[in-house]
């Protein structure tokens, strides 16, 4: 059994990391600050910029994917545990499955970019 405080510690550590990584991810969209040199908000979403983002900052996106998913899903898990405390096992399993599925989809995207 993993202690609840262990999840909590990871929740807070991922929160600290998210400030940095999500901050970077959002700064990509801000003209003037963007490491992709996007001139407008829309331009930062264009194919050329996006694929450059994957090539140069793939590791940032991969980290963001894992910590974002963990933090968000563990937060949802906390809420669900409050909502239906009796369904504890089901909640834990569902959250774990969602984590694995979405992490897999995300990593596939990043891998496809780096591979091709």
């Amino acid at each position: 059994m993993v202690k609840e405080s262990t999840w909590s510690i990871i929740q807070y550590i991922t929160a600290i990391l998210l400030i940095l990584f999500l901050g970077f991810h959002l700064i990509e969209r801000i003209p003037g600050l963007s490491p992709l040199q996007a001139a407008t908000y829309e331009e930062s979403l264009e194919y050329e910029k996006v694929s450059r983002a994957y090539d140069s900052y793939g590791w940032v996106l991969a980290t963001l994917l894992v910590i974002g998913l963990f933090h968000g899903l563990n937060g949802l898990r906390g809420m669900l545990l409050e909502w239906k405390p009796e369904a504890r096992t089901v909640i834990n399993i569902v959250i774990l499955v969602v984590f694995i599925v979405f992490a897999f989809v995300g990593f596939t995207t990043i891998y496809n970019h780096l591979a091709g």
Binding site: K3, E4, S5, G78, E82, R88
Partner: peptide, 9 residues
């Protein structure tokens, strides 16, 4: 107190 229904809620 360190459980799913303890202080971390």
């Amino acid at each position: 107190v360190d459980t799913e229904h303890g202080c971390h809620r």
